[in-house]
Amino acid sequence: MPTGVALRDPREQLFEAAERILLRDGPSALTSRAVTAEAGCAKGVLHRHFADFDAFLAEFVMERVGRIAPQAAALRDAAGTGTVAGNVTDALTALFESVAVAVVALITFRDELRARLRDTWPAGVPVLTEAVTMIAGYLAAERDLGRIAAGADVDVLAPTLIGTAHLLFADRTGPPPQTAAVHRMVSSVLAGTLQAAKR
């Protein structure tokens, strides 16, 4: 795209380009030149909107993390419906089939990005910590409804579920795990906490 041609939403267009590259080619392929080429815009567009490439990546990560909030709200609203294991399976599959796994790889890959994110996100990896909060909130709601045992420690169950799911989905070069495999893992982690008739 020639310089001077207006983009519909330059920041989001650049974010979408970064996501496509990240999913297709991995974090090592994510450069400012690759992003602007993928977005079909002049190289200077990225630097007009962001101080530098790591500032762009930090905002990209935080914007993608922000997308977890609606997923978390929908999951909380599902409390009391379906089965607990089924709801958690669906939520984990939706989360890890999105750009989440690739974003975790990107944060791990780039030291400067991790340093930038620490300014606004002092502990943990943004995508994973938000995912833990989402699952813990849902499990707490189910515990309040009596579908999970009153003594269930959701603050231990949630990171266990997220960590194990991340391992299942981590290899983006092969096919994603089948729903049955994710459900089996969820059921195993939650075993002993689910009320018998409401699993």
Rank of each mutant, 00 (worst) to 15 (best):
V103H: 05
V186H: 01
A191D: 14
L161K: 07
A181R: 13
S98K: 06
G137F: 00
V88R: 12
T129N: 03
A181I: 11
T193K: 05
R33G: 01
L22S: 01
R110W: 04
A55M: 02
L46G: 04
A181G: 07
A58P: 04
K198Y: 11
L113W: 03
V127Y: 04
V88I: 15
P27G: 12
V101R: 14
V45P: 00
F56Q: 02
L139P: 00
S187V: 12
G66S: 10
I162T: 02
H49E: 05
V182D: 13
A18L: 07
G44T: 06
V65T: 00
R8M: 09
G66Y: 07
V125W: 05
R147C: 07
T129K: 06
R116W: 04
D90S: 10
V61P: 00
V84Q: 11
M62I: 06
L106M: 09
V35K: 06
A29L: 10
T36G: 05
Q195P: 05
Y138R: 08
D52C: 03
G82A: 11
V101N: 14
S32I: 01
G163M: 14
F169E: 06
L117K: 00
A197N: 14
R20F: 15
A100C: 09
V127T: 06
V65E: 00
R116G: 01
A170W: 13
G137P: 04
V154W: 01
L157H: 01
E130P: 02
R172W: 11
L75H: 10
A197D: 15
A91C: 10
D9L: 15
T108M: 10
